[in-house]
Design a protein around this nucleic acid. Structure first.
Lengths: 352, 352
DNA sequence: TCCATATGTGCAAGCGTATGCATCACTCCC
DNA sequence: GGGAGTGATGCATACGCTTGCACATATGGA
């Protein structure tokens, strides 16, 4: 049926092991022999059988990317693109393949991570954007498979010894709030979200900035939405008085921020003249929406690039120490919604 | 090191083949024996080695999804989400894994499709959103691997015998244009794009609608952009007179449409009062942008679902005939930018 | 001349699973 | 009671590759 090394061997007049060594660039083979073998293999479009190879070497040349169950979340899908782009460079260079899986099989309840690892389908893992439970973390440590947690910082006894690459959401929260303070705002409403730790971290940053500039934290100025456009819209409509009482809003999700702006506009408030808005994430939409949204940029590309590179170091055994934690700094993208372009005393980079 | 069927066999006091048969639900094994084996395997968290399995059965339980090289294109990434979502259901049900690859390795120039197939890393393929060259098509036919082309209709001698699932872009072009005609517009500017066949098909639909309603096609009313927001913006600025001379624009990409609208607004034209705009794609942004964009909906979910289901039928040999072509119809999503809500004579479903 | 060394190549044993065939223990029936 | 039939299990081989080791040939030095 399909060609095998044995076939190539016969055609090249050498043994099967010589073919194998030639195709794997073993230094044992003479240039002449290797050349002959490679030429024949090339002509016939021969490729080594990955299963047989994996069985022999116990390596699959495949890495797994694990997504959370609630994939459809907008902020999750955001990472897919950057991650794939970064991964691609590495994959191409090292001749690796990429298996994408979701954390858990909803039907059978099977943990995909364990499944992929135990079945020896992957050599390494990138676990994206989700809280990883202790049992899984322990499993990862026990198997000692090269692995990177890519997301927010997750700290517990269980994460010790697991490599993490994450954005500094506390710093992001601080940045956004500080920017508004520097523009002269004192009553800054914070619209955050529940569920993941990153939002708690952003709230921490918000409070830290207030404290740093001597503004008392007012719990009444803290709302939580569910991260959707509609949720942002509804919050404004449900808390009219509250929104009327502040001069600025710091929304912890761009999509929600767009909803907030839409509602504010519908209520006749001008942005940023009447009320300043700062978002968080820097999604594609935020650059197009009117007014262009000032927001905290998630360093997606950098996170993905660093995670990939780090993983390759683990895979190639260049790095043996485990449990590194790499923190990436977010940055502020100043556009129009914060009103910085109306204030002459600040230096900034308005775009568009 | 890792557990094998032999280990389980020893522990269960049976032979290795009995373990293998038990785990594969062979009817040859008695319920009692199978129960004992499964219990032990379960307790130890045993999983069959995928490589050994693949070597033996010549099946990998993995399917490949191939993306075009220019992945970063917004319209390409749009499909990733729906496709993954649909795929997930199937993958979970059949215990399959998913390898994502790009058409060609930029560095080595290696064709990923051939690589994956020849190395026996996948059992089936979904090729997404890209023109597939003849050599590859011939290769696919020769290997006879279950395969679905998911995108626009591609017709040539080479595609005969290859299964295709695609959206009817001609119909979509017709729909968008017809809608504007029914709203009373006669001079309808068409902003299309170059590169892929789907745009040519959309232009065909546009012209067909004009013809159907007895409007002469005017080549001067046809522009091409490069699918970006900026491109849409620039076209307006570069062709002020042209845009001033029409009452409606049909833009073949939502993102470009948003750019067009932004530019029109900047030039003081009101949408839809002064000029109506209809887009194509129905991307997430289009529902949020002001005014909410009327657009031709790409049936992404349906395309993905149909493609997946079709592939599974091929894989399970339920379907033996090859070369089916399944055409999915797009639909029109009427929002605000077309001005339909201002016209009393038309029935429509304005949302928001 | 002969041995030590280096350089290529071949042999054969795994890697872990699936599966055709043989085997064995029963039951059933004439 | 013996043979046929049935159901459950084990034996042994194949799948295609990698790799340690043995072997063959060429090279250099004493």
């Amino acid at each position: 049926m399909a060609l095998t090394t044995k076939d190539i061997a016969r055609l090249a007049g050498v043994s099967q092991s010589t073919v194998s060594r030639s195709l794997n660039n073993s230094p044992l083979i003479s240039d002449e022999t290797r050349g002959r073998v490679l030429r024949i293999a090339e002509e016939l479009g021969f490729e080594l059988n990955a299963n047989a190879r994996g069985l022999s070497t116990n390596r699959t040349n495949t890495i797994g990317v694990i997504y959370p169950d609630d994939y459809l979340d907008h902020d999750v899908s955001l990472y897919l693109g950057s991650l794939l782009t970064q991964l691609r460079k590495i994959l191409e260079q090292w001749d690796l393949d990429l298996i994408v899986a979701f954390k858990e099989n909803r039907k059978t309840g099977v943990d995909s991570i364990k499944r992929l690892v135990m079945r020896k389908k992957v050599d390494a893992l990138i676990i994206v954007q989700s809280h990883t439970d202790e049992r899984t973390l322990e499993f990862l440590k026990k198997t000692n498979i090269p692995c990177v947690l890519l997301h927010f910082y997750q700290s517990s006894k269980a994460t010790e010894g697991i490599d993490q690459v994450y954005a500094d959401h506390v710093a992001g929260g601080y940045l956004g709030c500080e920017h508004l303070i520097k523009l002269g705002h004192r009553r800054i409403l914070c619209v955050s979200a529940e569920g993941e730790e990153e939002y708690e971290q952003r709230r921490c940053g918000y409070r830290a900035a207030l404290e740093r500039y001597g503004i008392a934290y007012d719990p009444a100025l803290m709302l939580n939405g569910d991260r959707t456009f509609q949720s942002g819209y509804d919050l404004v409509m449900d808390h009219e008085a509250l929104f009327d009482s502040v001069t600025a809003v710091f929304v912890h999700t761009d999509i929600m921020a767009l909803g907030v702006m839409e509602a504010l506009k519908a209520r006749g408030r001008r942005i940023p003249e009447d009320i300043a808005v700062v978002g968080y994430d820097d999604v594609e939409l935020s650059a197009y929406f009117q007014p262009h949204l000032t927001t905290v940029h998630q360093p997606r590309e950098e996170l993905a690039a660093v995670a990939c590179q780090h993983l390759m170091e683990l895979l190639s055994s260049k790095r043996t120490v485990r449990g590194e934690q790499i923190k990436i700094q977010p940055s502020l993208v100043v556009r129009q919604s914060c009103g910085a372009h109306l204030v002459s005393t600040m230096v900034h980079d308005t775009d568009l």
